[in-house]
Design a protein around this nucleic acid. Structure first.
Lengths: 252, 252
DNA sequence: TCAAAAGTGTTCGAATTACACCCATGG
DNA sequence: CCATGGGTGTAATTCGAACACTTTTGA
């Protein structure tokens, strides 16, 4: 049974005599689940864990947790994100609340799904491997429990949608990156190819990039210039419409 | 206290011997709240009710309800929408889950907010006035309880955002409407004015409208042609990007 | 020396904007 | 007959799409 809820100080102040309650209403388990995206320079990846408790123990799932007594939902999402990746302050956005009564066969649980974009390289350094977490290419991820695949599908759509207009994909890149890497990322997300001349021009026209002196020589003999994000402009233009994508139809 | 939950038939089939449970987790009240938009031909309106129960009895609030035992969240939103307006099959979209532990001072309640777009004229005919519901111009709505104003604010943003690219605002219009009415609606939502020649051309270019033979003579002496929505094309193009708005910057 | 990836400019057509006059009619 | 709102066309500009060659350098 649910732990008996304490009356908080604030509530006690507001209702000093008797604390009324909503009688006769059903209470539910509420969870958060996080769709964590990363990009390794070549393809989009998903961070999954092997479930430690029944039901479906040993099966792959999104990272998630029940919401705690006095915990805000988004705080809960940040908590598990930090537990799993060691990272804080990463991009996190609420996706959708999933409430099908049958979604968890043990007991009805309403799940609020969030998606997060992280720099996969940051993660690799801070990995806490207690939970058997693993990155999977999004195109070859294993079956997931419950409705988690539906969540991932929705998160992919949302990511595409936002990325078409807002410079959100930089959240997936390391501090320094090259234009061809960036183009790879966009092409992976939209599952298409762009003309590199037009792509480069469009990106440069946003003025969001600062060219560095050094080059990445890993991926070509000539080498590609590194760029850094201009964080000032990025923050200022995040909600502006930048129109990255040639034909934004058939996104959702 | 929460009513004891029955084990459903389906669950009993899945776990015939012993039904495991998630022990030691807190359970929460979960509600839905609906931001209901309407358009009277001149300005955007909001349907509000006067609250029938403590706390904040008599204060204005969004329509809402606790989620029931075996009820899907969206079903719950449709249920209260139907109770309040008599309407079914209206446009309804999940907005956000609000989970601040202090948002309801009586007991922590997680609320999943939905926004709905309805034809205000349909409503007026089917009004069920048991609940003291009332339409308010969005610019002069009363104070709302809890975090409902925050919900309305977010819903307005979302509506603007979607309306900039998708033909969503037709959901607010009656079967027959005129182009100047449509322009009024867009101008109200975006709080700006458009050139009527360019607006008309843009709307016509979507091929979503079917011109009628008759005119609306209410608003001018010459009269304005009525149009109907081409429902086939509307359904097909709903997710296409139609670029209704001249400068979609500063939308969110 | 050559294969492989990086970088860069131009032209064309479509879309967007700005802008002004005539039309129909009820009062 | 005139005030009011409805309806339409054109020119200038901007933006997006298509397209090909040169550069660098490690192997």
């Amino acid at each position: 049974m649910a732990k008996k809820r304490q009356i908080s100080n604030q509530e006690a102040k507001l209702f000093p005599i008797a604390m009324p309650k909503y009688q006769k209403q059903t209470r539910f388990l509420v969870a958060v689940d996080c769709i964590i995206f990363g990009f390794d320079g070549t393809e989009l990846k998903l961070l999954l864990v092997q479930r430690g408790l029944e039901p479906e123990k040993g099966k792959w799932s999104l990272i998630g947790s029940f919401i705690r007594e006095e915990e805000d939902i988004e705080k809960g999402a940040n908590r598990i994100l930090n537990q799993m990746t060691g990272l804080a302050g990463v991009y996190l956005e609420q996706l959708h609340a999933f409430g099908n009564p049958e979604r968890d066969p043990i007991e009805r649980t309403i799940s609020v799904a969030y998606f997060a974009l992280i720099d996969i390289h940051q993660y690799e350094r801070q990995l806490n491997d207690d939970y058997h977490a693993e990155w999977f290419p999004i195109k070859s991820a294993p079956r997931l429990i419950f409705d988690h695949e539906q969540m991932v599908e929705m998160a992919k759509k949302r990511l595409r949608y936002k990325a078409a207009f807002h410079p959100i994909l930089f959240e997936l890149l390391p501090e320094k990156f090259t234009v061809p890497q960036l183009q790879n990322l966009y092409e992976g997300i939209f599952d298409t190819v762009f003309d590199k001349r037009n792509f480069s021009r469009k990106i440069q026209s946003t003025k969001l990039l600062i060219k560095q002196k050094d080059k990445d020589k890993e991926n070509s003999k000539k080498g590609a210039y590194y760029y850094k994000l201009d964080k000032r402009r990025y923050a200022a233009n995040f909600h502006a419409f930048l129109n990255f994508i040639p034909n934004p139809d058939n996104i959702k």
